[in-house]
Amino acid sequence: MTKTSLYSLILLSSTLLGMTDAVASLKVSQTATPTVKSSLADKKLLTDITSVGSRLFSLGERGHIIYSENGTDWTQAKVPVNVLLTSISFSSEKTGFAVGHDATILKTTDGGESWTLLNYQPELDRPLLAVKSFGNEVVAVGAYGLFWQSKDSGNTWTQEFHDELLLEEDREFLLEIKDSDPELYEIEKQYLLPHFNDVYLSGDNWYLAGEAGFVAQSSNQGNDWEKLEVDYYGSFFSLTKNEQENLVVAGLRGNVFEESSDAWQAFSMDGKATINDILVYKETVFLFANSGNLYFSANGEDFKHYVFDDGKAVMSGVVKNSNLVLATEAGIKFIPLATLK
């Protein structure tokens, strides 16, 4: 059932191309349209949910960011954009970040009630897909290896390009054209990296998950990266660490891999639904998946299966008052933890 494979470490000399191309390029390049208040905000597509202090936050399409104290009554925040938002993360009860399409980066300093636009560049035609903040560190990642980082809680940002994350042949190709055709180099550079679908910060150790079996690790807060080889070529959408501090990645068609003592243990979920997010709550691991699927395991080994009748994708979830509160394609949903046995 389980399949193991060695992952290889590809350490790259960061001096070959210069370590990073750091550009402070955050800007609001076009006038953004603010979101409109809607009573449907908690009933339509929500892509992420998080809990900070006593508050829950969720966000989704049309610039909707909503918050709630109890999980049932939601208030819509003032947001200066109306694009699809994809990820939210708080570094404190007051300060948080949200990202989304058109390379949108939003910041709040009043506990999520109002948000300011730090970055909005529709002409990039590139969504940010995940954001994590921890202390003063903020990392936002997205399509085609988009990677923005701030070390001062979002005041200044750098855009990073780590060529060590490229495929070997692409890296060599870029190296070739860098001097001979600088223009082509700039263009190619933008499209050779995979989509970064998730980022996870754990002290000095940072991790990335992405398109086509992509998983990477940095042990020095993102300065240097190494790719982790997993024997799977489908995309990963989420990664985190479980109770045993083992890395868990999950993605397309119900594929889950857990790293333990230099080997990856593979799990395959019933119904092969694509997994959007992982939640580790105490010992239990929850996997939120498309087509109304929810998987959970008390020991991280044997997964059980719950399916919502409406078949709407479950994007993310948090535990609040012994309920699982879910962000789904059809808005907020609830399940009492007791029913998931």
Binding site: L45, T47, L84, D102, P122, E123, D125, N197, T274, N276
Partner: peptide, 11 residues
């Protein structure tokens, strides 16, 4: 890949 984080109109 069926990822709803892309359920948006491409520019």
């Amino acid at each position: 890949e069926g990822n709803l984080k892309w359920r948006s109109l491409p520019r």
